[in-house]
Structures are given as C-alpha cells and as structure tokens.
Deep mutational scan, measured.
Amino acid sequence: GQVNVNNTTYTFPTPKLAKEFAQKAAKKYNLTVHVSGNTVTVK
C-alpha cells in the first residue's frame, strides 16, 4: 500500500500497515485520511 503525506509517498508491504501509518499521520498533523483504490492520501 502507498501513503501520500505532504507530497511525500511512503510504500508499505501490506495495505494494513499503510492504513495504520496513515491514521497515525492524520492524527499527528490533524489531517484527514482519503482512500482511493490502493493509495491513501493524508491531507
């Protein structure tokens, strides 16, 4: 799974890890998680 945070893309071996990372990043920066297919964007 891929996660985009502040124009930086992070790649994870599983969608589960990507989702967990996205949720932590969203909480940390007070942003929202947007899911589109296999790509998760935090903005």
Rank of each mutant, 00 (worst) to 15 (best):
K28Q: 09
N38V: 09
F12Q: 01
A22I: 02
V5A: 12
Q2M: 12
T8N: 08
V33D: 00
T11W: 14
T11E: 06
A22T: 01
T32Q: 10
V3L: 13
N6I: 14
A25L: 15
G1F: 10
T41R: 04
N6A: 12
K27L: 12
Y29G: 07
G1I: 14
K28M: 08
N6Q: 13
K27R: 09
V33K: 00
Q2D: 11
T11M: 07
A22H: 01
L31S: 04
T32N: 08
N4G: 12
N4V: 11
K19L: 14
V42N: 00
Q23E: 15
A26E: 10
V5H: 13
V42L: 08
P13I: 05
N38S: 08
T41L: 07
G1S: 13
L31D: 03
V40D: 00
K43W: 15
K27V: 07
S36L: 09
V42M: 05
K43L: 15
V3S: 12
N7T: 15
V33T: 04
K43S: 14
T39I: 11
K43R: 11
N7L: 15
H34M: 13
K28F: 11
S36R: 08
N7K: 14
T9L: 07
A26Y: 07
K43F: 15
K19N: 09
V33R: 00
L17Q: 11
N6F: 15
F12P: 01
V5Q: 11
Y10I: 07
N30E: 04
F12I: 01
P13W: 05
F21S: 01
P15L: 11
K28S: 05
N7W: 15
N4I: 13
S36D: 11
K43A: 11
K27I: 09
N4A: 13
N4S: 12
L31Q: 05
T14Y: 03
P13V: 05
K28H: 10
Y10R: 02
T9F: 07
V35N: 02
A25G: 02
T41M: 07
V42Y: 03
T8C: 14
N38L: 07
T32D: 09
P15G: 07
K27S: 10
G37A: 04
N4Y: 06
K28D: 10
V42D: 00
T8K: 14
V40F: 04
H34D: 06
F12M: 02
G37Y: 04
T14F: 03
A25C: 08
G37Q: 04
P15I: 11
L17S: 06
